[in-house]
Amino acid sequence: MTEPVKGPASYFPSIEKKYGQPIAHWTELIRSSPLTRHGELVTWLKTEHGLGHGHANALVAYTLAGPGD
């Protein structure tokens, strides 16, 4: 039996469905941003790309926590 997905990755299916882009698109966007602080990146995704707070927060947390996709 497989473990349910937990943490930021649990948002990924709904993020891809709602915004029509794969997670790799968002992580690349976050990595290419000149911003580096979690809160700044969340605000940027919300204001410039129309993401909701929870989705933006999950993407930033995931991207900043790991080396890659």
Rank of each mutant, 00 (worst) to 15 (best):
K6H: 02
S10T: 06
P34F: 04
E40R: 14
G20M: 10
S33I: 10
K18L: 13
A9C: 02
Q21V: 05
S10N: 08
K17G: 11
Y19T: 08
E40P: 12
A9F: 00
Q21F: 12
R37K: 13
A24K: 13
S32N: 13
K18D: 15
K17S: 15
K17L: 12
G7A: 06
W26S: 09
P8M: 01
L29I: 13
R37P: 01
P8D: 00
S33M: 10
E16H: 05
I30A: 11
G20V: 08
Y19E: 12
I30Q: 08
H25N: 08
L29S: 12
S32K: 14
E28M: 12
P13V: 00
H38T: 10
Y11C: 06
E28K: 15
H25V: 08
S10G: 07
L29E: 09
Y19Q: 08
F12R: 02
T27M: 14
R31C: 12
G7D: 05
G20N: 09
K6D: 00
S10M: 03
P13T: 01
P34E: 11
S32F: 07
V5P: 04
T36E: 15
E40C: 04
S10F: 03
L35M: 11
H38R: 15
S32L: 11
G20W: 04
L35N: 05
F12V: 03
K17H: 12
G7E: 05
A24Y: 03
H38S: 10
S14D: 13
S10Q: 11
K6Q: 06
Y11E: 05
P8V: 00
H38L: 05
P34I: 01
T27W: 14
Y19S: 10
E28W: 13
